[in-house]
């Protein structure tokens, strides 16, 4: 009897353990409320002027991987109010990446940049760059991709009609096919370009103030100039520890990559 009862006892134990695990898991899941609720809670913290706590709450959502313009925007606001200019600029830039034409984010970013010491505005784009940028914003990145697929289908269909159905063979269809082909090429290029722009991570925001920029990727090299928290820099090159940055005004130098938060 005793011998027989032992394994049963063990079974009960493991079952209990499992149950406890499951319970705690479910409790944890319950605590991890829906993102919308947590977002609302963070918003109300913000409304109560508890900006640091609100920022932390937003940041948690961001860290979990949610990528929503409103989340980045609100986080930017909370960081701005809490006096963390660098984080504020970073989050506004992120929001603008998701919604390039968002006026509110642009406005708040401009405000945050006013707090950045030695802020240098980026050079205005040449007209064709502006056109390109505007064209890019005509569709969302996925819109370009969908359009690309659509035009490809149309081109194929047109070509097939043109070649196999003698009744459809005319020059209008042929020219239509050329036009569709051009549109397909444009949409494909745009889809690739928007993807590349959004994923190159070649720019970043400085997260600390008074960082000495070195002339070479070496601790002992000379100081060239200083960068301040919140400055947007272009990362031109990088070694293991050092990143070569260039500023909007053309200055370049090396700083430790730890000071840059890549966009």
């Amino acid at each position: 009897m005793r011998k027989g009862s032992m394994p049963g006892y063990k079974n009960i134990k493991t079952a209990l353990l499992l149950a406890i695990l499951l319970l705690t898991g479910s409790i944890l899941r319950a605590q991890q409320a829906l993102p919308q609720q947590r977002f609302d809670a963070a918003n109300s913290l913000y409304q109560q002027s508890k900006f640091t706590e609100a920022a932390a709450a937003y940041q948690q959502l961001i860290d979990e991987g949610y990528a929503i313009k409103a989340l980045y925007f609100n986080a930017g606001n909370a960081y701005y109010k809490a006096g963390k200019t660098g984080e504020a600029v970073f989050n506004y830039e992120k929001a603008l990446q998701l919604a390039p034409r968002d006026e509110a984010a642009k406005h708040n970013l401009a405000l945050a940049n006013q707090k950045v010491n030695g802020f240098v505005d980026e050079l205005p784009l040449v007209f064709f760059q502006q056109w390109w940028r505007q064209l890019q914003q005509l569709h969302k990145p996925n819109g370009w991709a969908v359009g690309c697929i659509l035009f490809f289908w149309l081109v194929i269909a047109g070509v097939m009609l043109n070649t196999f159905l003698p009744g459809w063979k005319n020059k209008f269809l042929r020219w239509g096919n050329y036009a569709l082909g051009a549109l397909f090429a444009l949409y494909l290029v745009m889809a690739i370009d928007t993807y590349a722009v959004a994923n190159n991570h070649q720019s970043g925001i400085i997260t600390h103030s008074n960082i000495k920029v070195k002339t070479a990727p070496d601790d002992n090299s000379k100081d060239a100039f200083e960068v301040q928290e919140g400055m947007k820099v272009h990362i031109a090159d990088a070694t293991k520890d050092y990143c070569k940055i260039s500023l909007a005004d053309g200055k370049t130098g090396w700083i430790s990559c730890a000071w840059i938060k890549r966009l």
């Binding site: 977002f39 991987g65 313009k69 701005y80 509110a104």
Partner: peptide
């Protein structure tokens, strides 16, 4: 600052 965005969001993880 422009005030924060409230409202219901579509909670998609990363784009």
């Amino acid at each position: 600052l422009v005030k924060i965005d409230g409202g219901i969001q579509q909670w998609t993880k990363s784009r």
